[in-house]
Amino acid sequence: MQHTTDHARISAGLARIQQSFLSEAEARCARLRVLRQQLSEMTQDQAALKEIGQITHKIAGTAATLGYPELGVQASEIDDAIDQRDPATGAPSPDLLAKIDSVISALALLKPSTQG
């Protein structure tokens, strides 16, 4: 019974944080687009890759808890791939680029609720 009450109280709090996550998602999506563009122009842009890793790391840390498990898994895969990547290997693989594109698309679909 206590567990149910806790869950209800947490749900209300999570809804508020979810709105912050969605607002943040817009900015993160915009930044990832810029960085992805940089990778298209200069395939070995390590700084851009590093920042993509940082952004996806943050998304991976919260998305599932806030109700977006698939986005969390996708972001986590990018985070892991960049973390374990040897910079000497050159340009990021097509698979990694496709995953980045996929996360950008998923973020673009997220919209903050306009309801009070």
Partner: peptide, 17 residues
């Protein structure tokens, strides 16, 4: 370093006291 995680933790911990 992620303010959202800090918000989440604050909420989760608050509920259990």
């Amino acid at each position: 370093d992620d303010p959202l995680i800090l918000q989440l933790l604050t909420e989760v911990l608050r509920v259990v006291g």
